[in-house]
Amino acid sequence: MVGGGLPCITTRRGESVIEIRFHGRGGQGAVIASKLLAEAAFREGKEVSAFPYFGVERRGAPVTAFTRIDDRPIRIKSQIYRPDYVIVLDPSLLKSVDVSAGLKEGGLVVVNSSRPLDELKREVGVDNMVAVDATQIAIEHRLGSRNAPIVNSAILGAFAKASGLVKIGSVIDSILENAPAKKEENAGAAKDAYAAVGGE
């Protein structure tokens, strides 16, 4: 075992645990998003955990955060290497970070981007993908600045629709209770992004 190389990359144990990985840049709210999603699922009676990548964070640098959702108490404490879902808050990360690394077979990627979906799918190499222009929605709701919009609430609204994992009402309640600032604006952005994603 000594000298056995890097840790393996699977974590899934309990059959019902759902693992979500967020990719953003420092300042966009990826860590807060992981917490808001956990709070939303918690409101629906789920067991949850949310945590940042245990790294060094700074504004503008790539940031990773995680949420686990399960029907049973969550005992696993290691990081997430094989997510069921990936949420990308910053479209520029697609060029620098392998956002689909370890994604489970059939796993869903939700991306903040205004580019054509086909193009994004080719770039990431994932077929199951949803794109939403969370940047535009955040700007419309005056979240952050034009140059550095805070897109986390919008992307969560889109995720609720695309994944069906949590109800939009739970996401909005979670935002209204737990968002650190501009609660109403953030809830509005989540609603708009939810509506912007196609599907029934």
Partner: peptide, 16 residues
């Protein structure tokens, strides 16, 4: 120093 201990690592130690 925070090196992540995954279920797979623990499984290997159990087998050992």
């Amino acid at each position: 120093g925070g090196r992540d201990i995954t279920p797979e690592i623990l499984e290997r130690i159990y087998m050992d």
